[in-house]
Amino acid sequence: MTDVHSLTLFRAQPERSQALGAHLLDLAAVAVKDEGCLDYRVFQGSEDGNLWVVQARWTSIAAQDGHFNQPHTLAFLDELPKLADEVDLYPLEPRRPTAEL
Rank of each mutant, 00 (worst) to 15 (best):
M1C: 09
Q64D: 04
V30K: 13
R41K: 12
G49C: 00
L25S: 07
A99F: 04
D26Q: 15
T59L: 11
Q44W: 04
L9I: 10
T2I: 08
P97Y: 03
L74A: 11
R16G: 02
E86F: 08
T73A: 13
A62I: 02
A75G: 03
Q70R: 15
G66I: 13
L80P: 08
E93P: 00
R41C: 06
R96C: 03
C37F: 05
A63W: 04
D34R: 01
G21Y: 01
G45D: 05
V32S: 08
M1T: 12
Y40Q: 07
L51H: 07
Q64C: 09
D88L: 13
G49N: 01
T8A: 14
H72D: 05
G36K: 11
R57Y: 02
E47R: 14
E47P: 00
V30G: 00
T2K: 14
P71R: 01
G36R: 09
F43P: 01
R41T: 11
L7K: 03
R95F: 08
L83H: 02
D65K: 12
L89Y: 04
T8Q: 04
A28T: 05
V32F: 07
F76C: 03
P94K: 13
L25G: 00
V32N: 07
L24P: 03
I61K: 12
L83G: 01
Q18G: 08
A29D: 11
A12L: 07
D48A: 10
D3I: 01
N69P: 01
A31V: 14
H67G: 06
P14S: 04
V87I: 11
A75R: 12
P71Y: 02
E93R: 12
H5Q: 09
V4T: 09
F43K: 01
A22C: 10
Q55V: 00
D48R: 11
P81W: 09
N69M: 08
V32L: 12
E100H: 13
